[in-house]
Design a protein around this nucleic acid. Structure first.
Lengths: 155, 155
DNA sequence: CTCATTTCTTAATCTATATTAATTTATCTG
DNA sequence: CAGATAAATTAATATAGATTAAGAAATGAG
């Protein structure tokens, strides 16, 4: 367990690696994401101050996600095993978030998912480029532009 | 903590309720699902022998999911708090499954998600009506029919 | 077993979002 | 600061999957 400082853009974990790390964010902003066969990025989660980010894959499996820094960040890096073992509360919270995300992906339109995102993570919206929000929502940047225009019209 | 037997079709938890229960499946098959504003069902997960199923929402919040029995089932019902607290291993496994599901929903086509589903849960495929598989995959039964036809053609 | 109900399939049409491409705006680097 | 590079927007077109509708197959209840 050690404190590290990383610059914006630093890749902390590569897909395919076996040394799974868990990062607790002291300051700054990280993201985890996959890249599909077509080379397209899909952001799995953002983690700002106080959040924990990791690729939730078992130790004998290669990681499926990249993790990198969206802002200059200070992190506490923990070994996978030790890390979350105790903090059941945090695990349950994470499961709740993931459950919610799945329900949204299955039942809500792009507009609804965007609304929900800015309600739930208003701070993240300010700090992250549009294309990453689109990636998190599971749509293209072009589609997000259209969604935002539609919202403007409505008001 | 008690053992209960339920008939196919029994609803074990309603959306909106506050007495969140956790069920461990001894035999049979359960599912959890949400119903959106248009009245459409979206299956969140299946649970067969050995699996645990619950609505992962915090105690002070209304449940978002229904849980019911797809087959006659024998269950062990546990109070929310006691249940998963210790079993970190199972929680991490669940997080892995959910992570995988999200990545699939964001990056894979209906055909790919279907292939992945039958690879991962070949037993479930046999025991569940097509429309429920469609619901789990996030597509309509009509679209699933088409997907299956396309697969047949290929082979 | 038989009729009724539900599920599954097929086909035609529609729609949300993807793709492509061009333009504008913002950010980075020397 | 100026040019270069990346990001965001807009518009035109394409497409995966939704919707609608109808018939076929399976399941269920009496």
């Amino acid at each position: 367990m050690k404190r590290i400082k990383v610059k914006k853009g630093t890749i902390l974990q590569h897909k395919g690696s076996f040394n799974h790390k868990v990062f607790q964010v002291e300051s700054g902003l990280l993201r985890s994401y996959s890249i599909d066969e077509k080379g397209k990025e899909h952001i799995f989660m953002f983690a700002s101050e106080g959040w924990i980010i990791a690729d939730n894959v078992f130790p004998d499996q290669p990681s499926r996600l990249f993790i990198d820094a969206i802002e200059d960040s200070t992190l506490i890096q923990v070994e996978k095993n030790k890390s979350m073992e105790h903090d059941t509360e945090k695990l349950l919270k994470r499961i709740e978030v993931l459950q919610n995300r799945i329900i949204m992906l299955m039942s809500a339109s792009a507009i609804e998912r965007y609304e929900s995102f800015i309600d739930t993570y208003p701070d993240i919206v300010q700090r992250v480029p549009q294309r990453m929000i689109a990636s998190y929502l599971g749509i293209t940047p072009e589609a997000l532009s259209t969604v935002k225009r539609q919202r403007r019209r409505k008001k």
